[in-house]
Write a protein that binds this DNA or RNA. Structure first.
Length: 658
RNA sequence: GGCUCCGUAGCUUAAUGGAUAGAGCAUCUGACUACGGAUCAGAAGGUUAGAGGUUCGAGUCCUCUCGGAGUCACCA
């Protein structure tokens, strides 16, 4: 019966949420397949410099140097040069003052490397100027390589697990951060050459969903999302909230009852107020005295015993939730390859416990409960199986890890889960290591900070949780409002305009969230999140739109770009862009390796900023000469291509006008 | 209390151990008969929580102190 649920959900997610991203990934894969051999059409200038420095130092001072450790940075604006080599580490080897060594190394480099046009030395830094010919060649190669920044397939497979919601209420802001982070990592890893399996674990069973079920059964009067005209996951969530309200009312009534007062008199500690007592007592009350509480436990028991009526209700309500989730995932532009349901996996892990016992990784206490002792690794003892033989959270996770590895055979498994579970994953991974699981060293917890509002942490009980659908609707509303204020006369069709507004609104929201380093907790200011100016997604989209509009002119006017090669005298603003473009592949690689999309976000912003400046200070379509015009157009085109590519890695699409 | 993470301008943030800590928002001043002003230029705003240490060089590494968050369940 569980299988049917899985199938239904999978089908719907591919029919709706999957559609857009499928198209998207098809394009990218097509490009990869076609252009993969040209990944680095010409040698990377930074590694040329590194190699040459290593060779020069070895030759000059008879001391071997690791080329990878030669520090090469792009030269700060106030100095002359494109790249700077840090010479301090070689001063000691040379037994000379840093500046003297820099002079010698600089001379050796210039003699050795034809791309180096000139050099100067400032306070131990060797500043190198790269020849225009190199940059010309670089631009030609890059402009014709749509897969620039993407690595060829490396034949390795990784799994990324993200989102993983409960099925008792709709997605909220916290899920959005998780989803954007997870999605972006899948895109980064694909760009880095991996085959990526996108998964989530749907927490579709347990007390929470039973609460919604009891609530609907008792108070729902047979209403449905369709009959009420409410988005179906919100409909279910509303019954969850109603359950909490009814429980609260029941508890308050009980507190005033004879039974409640008697218990208070009996158990109240000296000096404890009745309020404090009842607050502490709430869980115990729910488990032992509450009518609704006992109905929930009943429901859970019936579910575990496969009671047909309960299972039917469970399926009906979960299907409502999935239908709603699909819409939200669709709006966010994400999809999954493989879904796991907790109802299928919650019993897993018991055979691992047996195995662990036989390997003496686990031990059994007198009451029959099974434990792992991690005190030697700075952790505590943790229970892995209850005394009654039932699983706990970590038992399931061990079982699921093993099952997934058998099924998928990945090299790495990335869990995108908030940092409140750091300890859990440390213990989980350590346990799997000690069990000798072959994939144990490939496990990684991508931990991220919780999202907080300026007023503090979001709390369900205080109604401060920011709903995902509401938030999405809000950014779209702001984008529409802002566009209207601009009062642009636009011939685009209604659907085209709506599509662009959607890209702008979602671009603002996504960029706002993804630009912050994952590890940092995030203060989410709703007003700032919909800003369309400054360090935002739309700022980057705007530079893309400028380029896109110019490229239309190139097409319509049949402007010949081949004259670009005749251009000489590259300007500072152009050089900034070339150096930034050159950096793109290493940024992607680093971001993929560190599982850190914020690196790409900050890179895209910096590139867009350089472009806006370039655009403002130099004429493109009205450039002084034909070669200058062609060169700047080609440069612009390449910037646009890299911006679109980089933002796609963050899940942000580019509008063609705004 | 133990362990982990964080502390950078009023706010949100950036900086493979490298040059004068870089942006955005907010504040103030300029630039449109437009290659699209959702842009650009400029001003002001910093003892990188504090104190030691390692280093030619520390926001970054080490130690301690202070402040904040998370976690330490036979919950998930």
């Amino acid at each position: 019966m569980h299988k049917k649920t899985r199938r239904t959900y999978k089908k719907s997610i591919f029919s709706e949420a999957g559609k857009k991203s499928q198209t998207c990934s098809k394009t990218l894969e097509g490009k990869t397949a076609t252009f993969a051999p040209h990944f680095f059409p010409m040698p990377n200038i930074v590694s040329i410099i590194q190699d040459a420095v290593a060779a020069a130092v070895t030759e000059l001072y008879a001391e071997p140097v690791d080329a990878a450790k030669v520090q090469v940075n792009s030269t700060p604006p106030d100095f002359t040069g494109d790249y700077s080599v840090v010479i301090f580490p070689f001063a000691k080897i040379a037994k000379k003052a840093p500046d003297a060594a820099a002079q010698e190394i600089g001379a050796a480099l210039q003699a050795r490397v034809s791309e180096i046009r000139a050099f100067n030395v400032v306070k131990g830094f060797l500043n190198l100027e790269i020849s225009d010919a190199y940059w010309q060649q670089f631009l030609q190669d890059t402009a014709s390589d749509p897969s620039f920044g993407r690595q060829p397939k490396n034949g390795k497979k990784v799994m990324v697990e993200f989102s993983s919601p409960n099925t008792n209420k709709p997605l909220h802001l916290g899920h959005i951060r998780n989803i954007l982070l997870g999605w972006s990592c899948t895109q980064l890893l694909e760009a880095a050459g991996y085959e990526v399996v996108k998964t989530q674990i749907i927490n579709d069973r347990g007390v929470a969903i039973c609460k919604s079920m009891v609530s609907w059964k008792n108070f729902g009067e047979g209403k449905t999302p369709a009959s009420e005209g409410i988005k179906s996951d919100h409909f279910v969530g509303d019954y969850y909230v109603l359950f909490e309200q009814k429980t609260k009312a029941e508890y308050e009534a009980w507190q005033q009852s004879e039974a409640g007062q008697a218990l208070l008199a009996e158990k109240q500690k000296p000096g404890q107020t009745p309020e404090a007592f009842f607050k502490d007592f709430k869980n115990k009350w729910f488990n032992e005295y509450s009518q609704l509480g006992s109905e929930v436990r009943d429901m859970l028991l019936k579910w575990e015993n496969h009671d047909p009526e309960t299972i039917a209700l469970w399926k009906k309500m979960n299907d409502w939730v999935y239908e709603g989730f699909d819409k939200t995932y669709n709006a966010l532009g994400v999809s999954f390859d493989k879904l796991y349901y907790e109802s299928d996996t919650y019993l897993l892990g018991k055979d691992i416990v047996e195995e662990g016992l036989s390997k003496n990784v686990f031990f059994k206490k007198e009451d029959g409960s099974v434990w792992i002792d991690l005190t030697d690794a700075g952790h505590d003892q943790k229970v892995v199986l209850r005394a009654d033989g039932t699983s706990v959270y970590i038992t399931q996770d061990m079982g699921t890890a093993q099952m997934r590895h058998r099924e998928l055979g990945c090299e790495r498994y990335i869990y995108v889960v908030a940092d409140e579970q750091n300890y859990h994953f440390q213990v989980l991974f350590e346990a799997l290591k000690r069990l000798g699981e072959p994939y144990a060293n490939g496990l990684y917890h991508l931990s991220y900070g919780l999202v907080e509002l300026p007023t503090g942490r979001m709390k369900t009980r205080e109604g401060t949780v920011v709903d995902a659908d509401d938030l999405i609707a809000e950014v779209l509303r702001i984008a529409t409002e802002q566009a209207a204020e601009r009062n642009e006369i636009d011939n685009a069709s209604q659907t085209e305009q709506a599509e662009n507004l959607r890209k702008i609104g979602m671009g603002a929201l996504k960029f706002f969230i993804i630009k912050v380093h994952p590890r940092k907790k995030m203060i989410f200011n709703p007003e700032e999140s919909v800003d369309l100016q400054g360090q935002t997604g739309p700022y980057i989209q705007y530079s893309y739109v400028r380029i896109h509009r110019m490229m239309l002119r190139v097409q319509n006017d049949h402007i010949d770009l081949s004259k670009a090669v005749e251009y000489s005298g590259i300007q500072a603003q152009e050089k900034d862009l070339l150096v930034a473009l050159h950096q793109y592949p290493s940024v992607v690689e680093e971001a993929a390796q560190a599982y850190d999309p914020s690196l790409v976000a900050n890179y895209c912003y910096a590139l867009a900023k350089s472009y806006h400046r370039f655009y403002h200070e130099l004429s493109v379509l009205n450039a002084e000469t034909e070669p200058a015009k062609a060169f700047r157009l080609q440069l612009s085109q390449t910037v646009g291509q890299v911006l679109a590519s980089g933002m796609a890695l963050l899940g942000v699409e580019m509008p063609d006008r705004m």
